[in-house]
C-alpha cells in the first residue's frame, strides 16, 4: 500500500487488511486496501451516460455545463459512487455487501484521479453473521473529499 501524504479522516490507521481476513483479529480503525482509479476521461463520461441511463448534458457538453453555472462538464455523481463501491468489491465478493450509502459532497472533473478508502468503524454479530461497519470516502488528487459513505459487509471467517 502506498503511503498517502494527503490529510483525511481515514489516515493514521493501524493495520491494512489483506486477504487473510479474520473477524476476531480485525480491530476498529483498521483500513481496507485503497483503490486508486485511472484518471476520469470525457470518453468515460460518455460511456457511463449510455450505460447508466443518465444522459444529462452537463456530463457531456461543456456549453451545457457552463449554461448551468459549472466551469465545464462534471462526472456523474453515480460514477464516483460506482468507484467507491469498487473499494469494497476489490476486497470482498460483492455478495458480502449488505448495505452501502454515500453523500455527494463535491464534484469530479475530467482528469481527476479518484482514490477510495475504507476504515472499520464497527464490529457486530447479528443473526449469526459477523458484520463489519465501514466508513468510506472518495477523494480527488488534491485530497478534496468527493464522497462520504459507509457500508456493512458480512465476513465468513
Amino acid at each position: 500500500m502506498i503511503c498517502s501524504l494527503r490529510k483525511s479522516a481515514l489516515d493514521n490507521t493501524k493495520n491494512i487488511m489483506q486477504n487473510n481476513l479474520n473477524f476476531e483479529t480485525i480491530q476498529l480503525g483498521d483500513s481496507i486496501p485503497e483503490l486508486v482509479k485511472a484518471p476520469i476521461t470525457r470518453t468515460q463520461l460518455a460511456l457511463f451516460a449510455g450505460a447508466s441511463g443518465d444522459h444529462n448534458p452537463i456530463h457531456l457538453d461543456d456549453a451545457e455545463a457552463q449554461a448551468g453555472g459549472l466551469s465545464g462538464v462534471i462526472a456523474h455523481g453515480m460514477l464516483n459512487m460506482a468507484f467507491l463501491a469498487q473499494v469494497l468489491t476489490e476486497w470482498l465478493p460483492q455478495t458480502a455487501v449488505r448495505s452501502f450509502k454515500s453523500r455527494f459532497a463535491a464534484m469530479a472533473y475530467p482528469g481527476d484521479i479518484i482514490t477510495c478508502k475504507g476504515v472499520v468503524s464497527g464490529k457486530i454479530n447479528e443473526s449469526g453473521e459477523n458484520l463489519l461497519h465501514l466508513d468510506l470516502l472518495a477523494e480527488n488528487q488534491n485530497g478534496e473529499v468527493l464522497l462520504k459513505g459507509s457500508a456493512t459487509v458480512a465476513l465468513h471467517t
Partner: peptide
C-alpha cells in the same frame, strides 16, 4: 430539475 441535486444515495442488498 436544474434546481435539484442528488444529495445522498443508499442501497440495501438482499440478493444479487
Amino acid at each position: 430539475k436544474t434546481k435539484a441535486v442528488h444529495g445522498e444515495q443508499g442501497f440495501k442488498y438482499y440478493k444479487a
